[in-house]
């Protein structure tokens, strides 16, 4: 419950019921110091380091993994024009975009059903939404591999319905990757939407019906706009991790379904081409930030935390 509310609040404007009122000039800084120091050293500094790394070039005649700082901005151009990189990057956004829409299509009605039809079982149903988290995310993804395997139930049904060739399958494929992404981030979509819907005053919906709005119009004009903060939070909490994910593509896809995360992992950990991996990380992060800022501006959510 409170986790749901918290994730919902992440990106939602808080009503300032109680203005900060305490005095004490240095107290807040003492409270902030340890945490912010941690974040500065292990989040901000690494990002700067990563940016530095992205401008490096191999030491002439050096070993694999030996680089020197040459402020070689052309790394960005080289990487962005290389189809082994820009295609997975593009694919990442397509896959995660589709997965986000699917998760919204599944998660919104689910959250709505729990919030408005759940009655006294609402909290228990919410626990069921987060229950999959208790089983390792990798194991669940592996389970999907078994479920979607040629001898598994999904393919059997699809073959019976002639939706795939008698010898065809659904794993590994783009479909399986997108399905896995949708699955893995569905709770992140559902919980914030639930938190928003739960706060919608039921009498407002009654009032819209009283004022001649049919149920669907009432939903479109009242319930949906009031739940938008949750939708914004949910789509971001789904889209961002999905765009950077590589586990689903690695476990459920073919090489032709590689996403940018797989490329980053491979260039960083296997090829030890740190500058290229750093460039990719930076491009991924920058693209996401631009998309997110644009999206938030459009949806009119201002305060983020």
């Amino acid at each position: 419950m409170s986790i749901a509310a918290a994730i919902g609040d992440t990106l939602e404007e808080q009503p300032h019921k109680n203005k900060p009122q305490k005095q004490g000039r240095f107290t807040p800084y003492w409270l902030l110091l340890p945490g912010l120091l941690w974040l500065t050293i292990f989040f901000i500094v690494p990002l700067v380091t990563l940016f530095g790394t992205s401008l490096m070039t191999p030491v002439p005649g050096g070993d694999v993994g030996e680089f020197e700082q040459t402020f070689h901005f052309a790394n960005y151009v080289d990487t962005l024009t290389d189809s082994t990189y820009y295609i997975p990057l593009f694919r990442s956004f397509i896959y995660s975009g589709i997965a986000t829409l699917l998760a919204l299509a599944i998660g919104y009605p689910l959250a709505y059903a729990i919030a408005f039809k759940g009655g006294r079982y609402r909290n228990i149903l919410l626990v069921l939404v987060i229950a999959p988290f208790f089983v390792s995310f990798i194991l669940r993804t592996v389970a999907w591999r078994q479920i979607l395997a040629d001898e598994g139930p999904v393919v059997a049904i699809l073959r019976y319905l002639s939706l795939v060739e008698p010898t065809g399958g659904v794993y590994p494929s783009a479909f399986a990757v997108i399905m896995g992404l949708t699955y893995n981030f569905l709770p992140f979509m559902t919980l914030p939407i639930y938190a928003s819907l739960e706060r919608v005053d039921h009498r407002l919906i009654e009032a819209s019906g009283d004022l001649y709005a049919k149920p669907f119009t009432g939903f479109r004009k009242v319930t949906w706009p009031l739940s938008l903060p949750g939708v914004v939070a949910g789509t971001l909490l789904t889209f961002i991790p999905a765009a950077g994910d590589y586990v689903n593509a690695a476990l459920l896809g073919r090489p032709s379904n590689t996403m940018i995360g797989n490329r980053i992992e491979y260039t960083f950990l296997s090829v030890n081409d740190y500058p290229t991996a750093a460039v990719l990380s930076f491009i991924l992060m920058a693209t996401i930030l631009v998309l997110v800022l644009f999206y938030i501006r459009r949806m009119g959510t201002e305060e983020l935390v």
Binding site: R203, E206, A207, S208, G209, D210, K214, L226
Partner: peptide
């Protein structure tokens, strides 16, 4: 259905749409 009746209500807490 409520939306088909020529009846309107002034709700107790007003139920004005906040958005």
């Amino acid at each position: 259905k409520p939306y088909r009746r020529p009846v309107n209500t002034v709700f107790q807490n007003y139920a004005l749409f906040p958005h």
